[in-house]
Structure formats: C-alpha cells, structure tokens
Amino acid sequence: MTNLFPSPEWPTVPVLGEGAAYPVHRIFCVGRNYAAHAAEMGVAVDREAPFYFTKSALTTTASGATIPYPPGTENFHYEMELVIAIGAPLFKGDKAAAAGAIYGYACGLDMTRRDLQLEARAKQRPWDLGKDVEQSAVFAPITKAAAVGPIGGQRIHLTVNDEIRQDAKLDDLIWKVEEIVSHLSHYYHLAPGDLIMTGTPAGVGAVVAGDEIKGGIDGLTPVELVIGAAT
C-alpha cells in the first residue's frame, strides 16, 4: 500500500570514523539531573528515580545549523547536555547490561521554550509545547564509547557569543549513564536509534536572534548553533 503523502526518512547523526550515519528513531530526555539546575528552576530533585520527557526524532538538527527563533515564545533557552546513543537492544537490563548497550556519546542542545514549559508545569500539564520544539534537538557527531572511556570527571560547558554560561563536571549527574539506561529499559524496549539526553547543568538562559551557541564536553566533538530571525 502506498502512502497518502511523502514520508520523511529518519534523521541521522554522523559518527566519527564511520562512513555510515546513526539514524535517530526516538529521543528520550532526563529531567532535573543536576542538583544546581533543579535549584535554579525552583524545584526539588527527585532522587527516587529519574524522570523523562521526549522529543520527536524529527526535531533532530545538525551541529552548526542556523535555526529560526521559534514561534510562541519570548524566552527561548539553551540546555547543554551529554547524549547517550544506544547501539544494542536492551530490555529490563541491569547496569552492566546497560553499559554494554551504549554505542557512543555526543554533545547535544535541548533548546526549550521556557515560558511555555513553566506555564505547563504550573498547571501540571505535559511539557510538549515547551520541549518538543521544531529543530530543538541539536547533536554533534557521535564518538564511540570505547574511544571515550568511563563517564565521570569530564567538563561540560557552554558559551553564548563566547561568554561562558554553563560550566560543570559530569560527576555532577545525579543519575549516571548506566543507571539511566538501565532504568529506562524497564519501561521501553531500547534499541539502536534511541538517543538519551541526560540533563543540563546550572546556568541555563535565554538567547535571541543573532546569538552563537557553542557547547563542549571533554573528549567529544563540540556542538554549535546560531539563532536566526523569527519566521
């Protein structure tokens, strides 16, 4: 049976040292995974279990892109994040199995309509309008896990127009990468094509048209984004 209209292909992210790209099927995001960021957002950290929201795979955007300032917001925020790329099926796995299912890591930006997110939060509604924003999941090329080594003391940082805004260590993650992957696998059949954005450190803030964002994590390819005019 043919489709009623053309359907887009899965978006992809480059992989260092590979001629083939990584197709993105799902994007999971961990909320409030740095205590200092939770504090700046005026909320307590839930240490009983991670919690998640999602972005459509079609929000995937390549590092170096220029994206338009999105509609419906006057408070568009950057969030610099470590991204986990899943490379093997995993369901109800323990931390050891979770570590074995990780294909690689990347720098990512979770761009957020903060005013809409906070409005929804105040009304106890889902965050979709604030988080699942077109062109809001920005990914640098993936580095394979073996080339990165253990995740721990690496610096994670972000600048806007070369001015430092976020600066922390991956040690500050409340839920570590293996814990996140293991926990999530008890609710989803994780598979290659799944990306997990692990949360952002303190220092989030608004950007406007013309701003240049650059984010980095030790040992990974930096992520870059330019904010264009509203359309």
Rank of each mutant, 00 (worst) to 15 (best):
M1C: 06
M1V: 07
T2P: 00
N3C: 10
N3L: 15
N3S: 14
P6I: 05
S7E: 13
P8G: 03
E9K: 11
W10M: 15
W10A: 15
T12M: 08
V13I: 15
P14L: 04
P14N: 12
V15N: 09
L16T: 13
G17H: 09
E18W: 10
A20F: 02
V24Q: 00
R26Y: 02
F28W: 09
R32S: 11
N33M: 03
A38M: 06
E40W: 06
E48Y: 08
E48M: 15
F53W: 06
T54N: 14
A62P: 00
A65E: 04
Y69A: 11
Y69M: 00
A85N: 03
P89V: 08
G93M: 04
G93P: 04
A97C: 10
A98T: 10
G100W: 07
A101S: 11
Y103H: 09
G104F: 03
Y105E: 01
A106Y: 05
T112V: 09
T112Y: 04
A122K: 11
K123R: 15
R125W: 13
R125C: 11
L129S: 12
K131P: 00
E134I: 04
S136Y: 00
V138Q: 00
P141E: 04
A146S: 13
A146E: 12
P150L: 03
Q154M: 02
T159H: 04
E163C: 12
I164L: 13
I164V: 15
R165A: 06
Q166G: 08
D167W: 04
I174K: 11
I174S: 10
V181D: 01
L184G: 12
Y188K: 14
P192K: 02
D194F: 10
L195T: 12
I196Y: 01
G199R: 05
G199A: 05
T200W: 06
P201Q: 00
P201L: 02
V207I: 14
A209S: 14
A209N: 11
G210T: 10
D211K: 00
E212P: 11
G219Y: 06
G219N: 13
L220G: 05
P222F: 00
V223W: 12
E224Y: 09
V226L: 01
V226R: 12
A230K: 13
A230Q: 10
A230V: 05
A230P: 05
